[in-house]
């Protein structure tokens, strides 16, 4: 191609940022799949919900409660929105999903598909489908920094770092702590873990809440970069599915690394053959699944 090194590095950097979002989203999916064995189709919609909570907190909440000057700023939203999304997830799990565990796992996928439709339709009624810019980027994160090979927005750098930290902590907790050990054991032999006096249903509920909270967090992080719109979840969910499948269903490390890698692959495609940027992941997916049916990091069933 004869591309200058700087240009390649710049594109890699952009791809990595995109990949970090994929990683956080697919990590949430993988955690949920690992323990509940369901594919959470509502993940994209909950990502959108997180972004909307941040936007509403900043623009509208004050007006609703009669104090027009009251605002939830970005930092507060970064904590509150995932919590709320997590609670919403817990509600879904307790009232609906938990009734389906005794049936085929596909019903979980179908139920969450319905949830996604409801959320998406609801927000489409009230908000601009084109997306509304999120104006609350903190002053300290505005502007650009010189990385040597390119000028990069400070905020994107922050989002990249924050995503990587979240991924690392989640991986560490699940793979390296006692809590994580219970979780993993619960996946393998729920009856046995229950016998040890651990409340497995509660653990499942909390895991689902945590998984979707990650989606909410990604939503808040994405809000200042992309516009906040009702379709942002639907556009990303299929790609994130692909990431999880390529990484190996339920594999924590797999979903993180695959997310980052596929972000880069997409970034490179945007230079080499842009029209395929949205499809390249599926080519990769077909090839990987033909060669390694359980995904890159998955165990053979």
């Amino acid at each position: 191609m004869g591309l200058p090194l700087d240009a390649v590095l710049a594109q890699a950097m952009l791809g990595l940022t995109q990949g970090a979002f994929y990683a956080v989203l697919s990590l949430g999916l993988a955690v949920i799949f690992g323990l509940l064995n369901i594919i959470n189709f509502a993940h994209g919609a909950l990502y959108m919900l997180g972004a909307f909570l941040a936007l509403i907190g900043l623009n509208q909440l004050g007006g609703w409660i009669g104090a027009p000057d009251f605002q939830i700023n970005f930092w507060a939203a970064l904590v509150l929105a995932p919590l709320l999304v997590g609670l919403f997830g817990i509600l879904i799990e307790r009232t609906m999903l938990s009734r389906l565990y005794k049936f085929d796992h596909l019903y979980g996928l179908l139920l969450t598909f319905g949830v996604a439709l409801v959320l998406q339709g609801f927000f489409t009624n009230y908000y601009n489908v084109n997306g509304t810019p999120y104006p609350g980027t903190p002053a300290s994160l505005r502007g650009i920094v010189n990385l040597g090979f390119m000028y990069f927005p400070k905020y994107r750098l922050f989002a990249l770092a924050a995503s990587l930290v979240v991924c690392f902590i989640t991986w560490y907790v699940i793979e390296r702590t006692k809590l994580g050990a219970y979780l993993r054991a619960g996946t393998e032999k729920p009856e046995l873990v229950q016998a040890f006096g651990i409340n497995v249903p509660l653990m499942i509920t909390l895991t689902y809440g945590f998984g979707v909270a990650l989606a909410g967090l990604a939503g808040v992080l994405a809000a200042p970069i992309y516009s906040v719109g009702p379709l942002m979840g639907a556009n990303v969910i299929i790609t994130v599915f692909a990431v999880v499948v390529i990484g190996g269903m339920g594999s924590i490390l797999g979903s993180i690394l695959t997310g980052l890698a596929l972000g880069m692959v997409e970034g490179i495609t945007k230079v080499v053959y842009p029209p395929a940027a949205n499809t390249v992941i599926f080519f990769v997916m077909v090839i990987i699944l033909l060669v390694r049916p359980a995904g890159l990091f998955g165990r053979e069933v």
Binding site: A7, A10, Q11, M150, N235, A277, N278
Partner: peptide, 15 residues
């Protein structure tokens, strides 16, 4: 050529 409905134009802008 950016696909219709691209949400992130950064790559194209850098090009």
């Amino acid at each position: 050529q950016a696909p219709l409905g691209t949400s992130d134009f950064s790559s194209y802008l850098i090009q």
